[in-house]
Computed example of a mutant assay.
Amino acid sequence: MPNSLNPLELIARRWQPSAAFVRRAALATVVMAVIIVVTGGAVRLTQSGLGCSTWPKCTPESLTPTHAMGINGLIEFGNRMLTYVLCAFVGLFIIAARARHPRRRSLTRLGWAQFWIVMGNAVWGGIVVLTGLNPYLVAAHFLLSTTLLTVAVLSWQRAGEGDDAPRDVATRPVGQLAWLLVAATGALTVIGTVVTGTGPHAGDAHKVHRIPLNWQEITQLHVDFVYIVVGLTVALWFALRAVKAPATARRRVLELLACIALQGVIGYVQYFLGLPEIVIGLHMLGSTLVWIAVLRVALSLRDRGPLPEDGPADGDAPAAAADGEPAEPQVASASSR
Rank of each mutant, 00 (worst) to 15 (best):
P2W: 11
L5M: 14
P7T: 05
P17M: 06
V22S: 05
V22C: 09
R23T: 03
A26N: 10
V30C: 11
A33L: 02
I35Q: 03
T46P: 08
G49P: 03
G51E: 02
C58W: 01
T59K: 10
E61F: 08
E61I: 05
S62G: 04
T64I: 13
H67S: 14
I71L: 12
G78T: 02
G78L: 01
M81S: 08
L82E: 07
Y84V: 03
F89H: 07
H101D: 07
H101G: 02
S106C: 05
G120T: 03
V123A: 14
W124Q: 06
I127H: 03
T131G: 04
L133R: 04
A139M: 08
H141M: 03
L143I: 13
T147S: 15
W156M: 07
R158C: 04
E161L: 09
R172V: 08
G175E: 10
Q176C: 07
T185Y: 00
V190R: 02
T196W: 05
G197T: 05
P212W: 05
W215I: 12
F225N: 14
V229G: 00
V229N: 00
V230C: 05
W237L: 15
R241G: 13
A242H: 13
V243H: 01
L257E: 13
C259D: 13
A261L: 14
L262W: 08
G264C: 11
G264I: 11
Y271T: 12
V279A: 13
S287L: 10
A293L: 11
V294C: 09
G305C: 07
L307V: 09
P308D: 09
P312V: 11
P312E: 08
G315W: 10
D316Q: 15
A319P: 03
A320T: 13
A321N: 14
E328F: 04
Q330W: 08
A334G: 11
